[in-house]
């Protein structure tokens, strides 16, 4: 399941949905991205996530399908928020469920790595000094490429 939404999400609710839907889950892995309160040594006021409607849903679906084809998964959830968020707010949720731990852990890592560079989102950070668009990190690209094979 994928969702691109403005609203917050509840990890407990999302975990319950998966557990109710499937009764053969033996392992669940999850990742939550959270807005930090610092940016380039300044205090962060807010982070606005811009997205490309339509393409964001398309890319999240493609990333989820990649994970489902590479690992033996029972189910998965990817939720990515957009709009203005504040320190402590949740940005992104990834849940992967499988029979055994390896598939859940690895695929969760894979999904968040690919979201970083293939999810059509752009972050605008407002600090107490200025506002700027966050540049893509070279390290994120490297993390993406390590899943090439």
């Amino acid at each position: 399941m994928i969702s691109v939404q403005k609203n917050n999400f509840s990890i407990n609710e999302e975990l319950s949905k998966l557990k109710i839907k499937y009764n053969n889950i033996g392992a669940i892995s999850n990742f939550i991205g959270i807005v930090r309160d610092k940016s380039k040594q300044s205090n962060l006021v807010s982070m606005t996530l811009e997205h490309y409607p339509g393409m964001a849903e398309k890319m999240l679906t493609e990333i989820e399908n990649q994970a489902l084809s590479r690992w033996n998964l029972i189910g998965s959830t990817i939720i990515h928020r957009y709009g203005e968020l504040f320190p402590g707010d949740q940005i992104v949720l990834v849940i992967t469920a499988s029979e055994h731990r390896k598939d859940a852990v690895e695929s969760c890592h894979f999904i968040i790595d690919w979201l970083k560079t293939k999810g059509p989102f752009w972050k605008y950070e407002k600090t107490n000094r200025a506002g700027f668009w966050v540049e893509a990190k070279e390290t994120d690209k490297k993390e993406e490429l390590k899943w090439k094979t």
């Binding site: 940005i91 992104v92 979201l115 293939k118 989102f121 752009w122 540049e135 893509a136």
Partner: peptide, 10 residues
């Protein structure tokens, strides 16, 4: 067509 800088999702 869309033009954009490298994505910064996640």
């Amino acid at each position: 067509i869309a033009f954009f800088p490298p994505m910064t999702g996640g």
